[in-house]
Structure formats: C-alpha cells, structure tokens
Design a protein around this nucleic acid. Sequence first.
RNA 1: GUGGCUGUAGCUCAGUUGGCAGAGCACCGGGUUGUGGUCCCGGUUGUCGUGGGUUCAAUUCCCAUCAGUCACCCCA
Length: 440
Amino acid sequence: MSKPTPISGFPEWTPPQRMIEQYVLDRIRATFELYGFAPLETRAVEPLDQLLRKGETSKEVYLIRRLQAEADSPTGDDALGLHFDLTVPFARYVLENAGKLQFPFRRYQIQKVWRGERPQEGRYREFLQADIDIVDRDTLAPHHEAEMPLVVGDALRSLPIPPVRIQVNNRKICEGFYRGVGLTDPEAALRAVDKLDKIGPARVAELLAETAGASEAQAKAVLALAEISAPDASFADAVRALGVTDPLLDEGIEELVRVVETAAEHAPGLCVADLRIARGLDYYTGTVYETQMVGYERFGSICSGGRYDNLASAGTARFPGVGISIGVTRLLGLLFGAGALTVSRDVPTCVLVAVTSEEQRGASNRVAEALRSRGVPTEVSPSAAKFGKQIRYAERRGIPYVWFPGAEQDEVKDIRSGEQVPAEAGVWMPPEVDLKPLVG
RNA sequence: GUGGCUGUAGCUCAGUUGGCAGAGCACCGGGUUGUGGUCCCGGUUGUCGUGGGUUCAAUUCCCAUCAGUCACCCCA
C-alpha cells in the first residue's frame, strides 16, 4: 500500500491540537449548560428533500448510499444526505418530537457538519459546529433574539482567543426598507449588499442595478442604509433620517434596538448594530448575527445565525426559532495557522515515573497507581534507560515532573526548574496549574 | 463546481541552463558507570506530492492527478 494522503477539506489535528479542541469544546459546552440549554445530538443523515427544503445549497450536500444499492434509486426522494448545518436537522427533530418537548425548547448541539465546498484556509468540507437554538410553539418572544449573542459572547470570552465583536442586523429592516424605496427583489439586493466589505460601494451600486433592478437613487438609499453602524440604539435615528417608511422596517428597528440595548447592558462592547450584515441563508426572517475576531477580521465570521420563523412547520403547527452557531473548526484552524493558540504540553501526563531497572518496574507502577488514584495524570517510563534519557523523554513531551523511586526515599523533580525534593506518592500533589495542560 | 499560484528531509527553505540531492533547525549516538536543557564531536534523514509522456538520462521539460492556498460561488 502506498503512502496515504490527506483528503481535501477533511482536516485532522495533531494530539496537542486535539487537546486544545477538547478544551475549547468543554468551555463552550459548560457555558451553554450554564445558560440552561439541553444537550441534543441528531443523526448524521437527513432525507434529501429535508435538506433541500430551504436554501439553494443542493450542490453542497453530500449524498450517501450503499455500495450495492440498486442503480436506479440513489437520488430519489428517499435519498439520504449528510447534514450541512445543525439548524435544519434540529427543525426536523422538533417537528418529529414536538409531543415530547417542553416549549420554549432550548438546546445545544455540538457536531460535525459536511459541505461539498472548495476548501481553503478556515473553510472545510467536514467541520465542527457548536450550535444553540431556542424554539417555541406558534410565537417566539423577541427577547430570545437578544439572549443569543450574550451566550456565545460568554462562551467565546471564556476562551484564550482574541476578543470578538458580534455584528447584528435584522432582515425586516432590510426588507422593509427595500420595499419602502420600491425595490421588488430584496433577496438580490441583500446578496449585493453582503459584498460591500469586499468590493466596495461603487461595485455594489453596479450590482444592485444589474441584479436587483435598482435605479441610481434606490442604489444610493440601499448603500446609505448598509453603511449605518453603531454600538447602541442610535442606529435607529440614522435609519429614520433616511426618510423611508414601512411597517416592516419599523418592526425590524424595534427588534434590533432591543438586541443592541440588552447586549450593551450585559456585555458592553460585544455587539454592534451593523446594517450591512445580510447572511446568505434565506430562511432567516428577523435578527441575523455575524461574529469576527478583533484583529482577524479578514478571516470572516466564526459564529453566526439568526431568527427563522418558517423553518419548522408542518400543517398548522409552527415552531419559530432563533439560533447561533460557533464554527469551532474554522476558529481553531485559523488560530492554529496564525500560531495564536498553543498548549503547555503534548500529552496529558503530569508525572513521568522513572524506572530504575526492569526488575524494579513494579515499584514504579505502584507509585503511578498511587498518584493516579488521587487524580494526577501519570505514566511510567517506557524503558529503564539512563535517567538522563528518561528525563529527556519527559522534556520532549512537556511533562513537568519526573518521579524517582528510591530504596528508602522517593524524589520528584520539576524539570523546568531542576528542583528535586523528597516526596511520597501517597500525599504529594503538583500545584493546581500543573495538573492539566494549559491552553493559551 | 470554475479559474490562478504552490508542492524538495519532521520543520523553514536552497539547488540542478536535464547528468549520483543540500543547509539550518529538529532527531539519534558519544563526551557524562545511571539526572535533561548550554557546549563540543560524530551520524541518520528524502520513491524532489503521485502517475504517465519526451529523452541515452527527468527532481528539473510536457500532460494528468492529488494536496495546500487565493479569487469566484457560498458560508462556520
């Protein structure tokens, strides 16, 4: 067998990177639970028609089929696809299990998702999302839209990563405004506005004319709206100053004011109303979120979501929801690439117990057992080589302590300082900071 | 899915106008009859991404493919 090669877009981390990932996941999970979100995992596959129900992502969905399936049925209505986000499976789950759930239902879900995109830095075909959603029956109170950024803000701020800024907008503002100025294709207008950062106002104006049929005056108004940005409710005055009126617009402004003011009270500096944020997914109907790391804006959004009123509905039952999702793999991939996220050692081991000779390995094993029984991650040296080599084994992996069993007295050495002291395996404890690898 | 750039040791890279493949770091051994990191001495490291083609000869030229990256698309 020839040497295996990586598969494009399916990243695999090193053990130290995986330790960081697990640490990050633990923190995110702890924060989600702190806010009372219940855990959920859904299957990896959904019926293809479910996946394609909303949005034009068909090209991205990975189909799944048996090797020996009948040749004529792999793409029928019953075909299965890997989910490409966690919101669509969740909406399906809610419909399927509505009878067993208490509403409003708050859940978190941390799972892999798959998208058949062309990969590049921070963009993968298989990646982890950490998602929270709240759904309710019939109507969903707008204050939930204000809670989302607070939760992920807490989660992200608990991590050793650069500070984040969550940009918030409301689809109703855009759609109401566009309608107010007489534009008929709000989707096309949104898509054009979404490129503002990348291609600049002049090109966006051209795009608006080409794809959304905007006149010069309409394009100018749309751009004026998109350029509004404020960390507080003052954005509302700026919007009204543009002189466009529409009931939907007013509704959107009211909702966004609430989100921004709530955030300003509980997490100053976290959120900013940014009326250019559009979000590609067309199932969003209200508040939308995007998140950037300060100083890493060029990496794009590492956490986004929004409110969806029509994703989960069957017959007369309607379950409006709001959710936001942290792109864990992107976050990590980008920071790994920038060398901005490291761990203090390559293994969980805190203590390496040296082996004096193979005949004495039992004594070392007993020391390790005593340490482990008190929660100290410990391994025994793989060989009874010279102590210098055993110390080096520990050093190479970043293991901070080496334990030397003695005939009468054991000793433990902190190999960073070189300090070596008598110790007893039944009582000795490392300082708290050394117990586990430090992520930073 | 479309187009551009890149691909030499574990890492960062040099190099061959087509003729036995290099440096630094890392790694291994010794200096040190059991205590590492500095220092000194010695050593290993590669199907030159993979598969074809042209050629007496290809790591070098050509084609394809895979991977990485960038733009489009889309988006975490």
